[in-house]
Amino acid sequence: MRDLRAPFLPALLVFIAAVAAIPIVSNNPSLREELFLVLMLVTLASSINIIMGYTGYVSFGHIVFFGIGGYIAFWLMQTFNVHFLLAAIASAIPAALIAALIGIPILRLRGAYFALATVGINEAMKSFMTNFEPFGGAIGMFFSFSIYLQYGGAREAAFLAYYTMAAIALATVATSYVIRRSKFGLSLMAIREDQDVAMLVGIDPARAKVMAYVISAFFPALAGATFFFKNGIIEPGPAFDLLRSIESLVMVVLGGIGTVAGPIVGAALYEWLRGFLITNPTFANFQLAIAGLLLLLTVLFVTAGLVGSLRNRFPRLRAYIQ
């Protein structure tokens, strides 16, 4: 079985890359903007899936790393004129370090307590940034136009951001896959199922969890750096948006928690649905309510999400869809 496994990862990466190339080839800026968002959500959802789906820790306020990455990178670019790519990497490393520092104490909490702690940390960070004058306080920071000159102008900068976001999404998905198929991933899943048993078979749960948390913080930080670079403005509200955090969780559940493809499917579906509802005159007003209803139906009746249900329904697919 194992050896007959389809080349799932290469196929998946080629697929994502091909989709990402469409707006470039067809020179369609509005599609590019839409896909930028989808790729970002794929990154967020896949990252959350590592800590939530594989490890079983519901990181409700996970968006905090998106915000931290965004803020540090933005500050570096605006104040020191650091190149975007450098700033992005330079922001993801401290974000990962912060994840390690936060993770060591809060990953000892279980269940609802952990979820609440992550909300608290995100809100603490948001209210802190609102007061932190070096980062612009409540008003936030914004670029002067000249910042984009070194990339050849605002249009070129938007392309650079798009390519970067695509690369980040690909890297996240690849990492998610590698973890899922690795011994490390198996240790995470064992922890998810029963931490005490995991410990009794020789797994150091504290270490494994912190590693998972750090990895799942790294990519959202990169995504935050890229998002706000393209945006040209960063404020506490959008950077630490709890609703977006919860939406990413919803995408994971919609697509299939604990699977590699699930968060991708969930992110694409969620965004497509949102676009559909907003532009549809009958539904536009009830966009949120319908999203809520669909979420409820999924939670109540399709617990494993789309990908998970497919895998359960057709065990043969298990070899092909991770």
Partner: peptide
């Protein structure tokens, strides 16, 4: 069972 085999001695 793989979990048992993986992380022990």
């Amino acid at each position: 069972v793989t979990v048992g085999a993986c992380f022990g001695r």
